[in-house]
């Protein structure tokens, strides 16, 4: 690792634990489905609570507060729920430098004023397809494919990010 212009950010790394992928056949059903599920389903590029919009018809439900069987039943033919936690590693970036890390490892405008808390972006970082979720001005979650985690974390350490856990 070289000093000098180190990125001021710390990385806390861990497994994702629980992660469900919710697919709807029709994105227009989102509002109806959200009321039926009792879970907000955010619009493109957005997060609401622990729910992230991942694709045109896919949402992620992060964490243990979601009952897969109950969700599947409540969907009532409008979509399906699948378990995907094992494929991802969760990296929490803390500190003012997380935007700098994303600008060095990716090609997305993390410095835009609109790229703030509640933003979700699916984008390559260090050539691995990651999911970025901005939590706060000084905190950002990055979901890294498990097989690429070693490569990404090593590259980000070389950029100056410190792994604290």
């Amino acid at each position: 690792m070289h000093k000098g212009r180190a990125i001021v950010t710390e990385m806390t790394v861990g497994p994702v634990g629980e992660l469900l992928a919710l697919d709807l056949w029709n994105a227009d059903d989102a509002a109806t489905v959200a009321s039926a599920l009792g879970v907000a389903l955010p619009g493109p590029g957005q997060a609401e609570g622990a729910v992230l919009r991942i694709g045109p018809r896919r949402w992620w439900l992060v964490g243990t507060n979601f009952d897969r069987a109950g969700l599947a039943a409540a969907l009532n033919g409008t979509g399906v729920v699948s378990a995907v936690a094992g494929g991802w590693v969760h990296v929490q970036l803390s500190g003012v430098g997380w935007r700098d890390l994303i600008m060095q490892s990716g090609l997305i405008d993390a410095e835009d004023a609109g790229f703030g808390p509640g933003t979700v972006a699916v984008t390559p970082l260090s050539h691995a397809r990651c999911v970025v979720h901005v939590r706060a001005a000084t905190q950002c979650d990055v979901f890294v494919p498990a097989s690429y985690a070693d490569h990404c974390l090593s590259a980000w350490r070389a950029m100056g990010a410190k792994a604290v856990a």
Binding site: A21, D23, V80, A83, V84, A85, G86, G87
Partner: peptide, 15 residues
């Protein structure tokens, strides 16, 4: 044309 079928890549989810 978008059948009611989700493709979920679980290649890394399952060891």
């Amino acid at each position: 044309g978008h059948p009611r079928a989700a493709v979920v890549d679980v290649g890394e989810h399952w060891a």
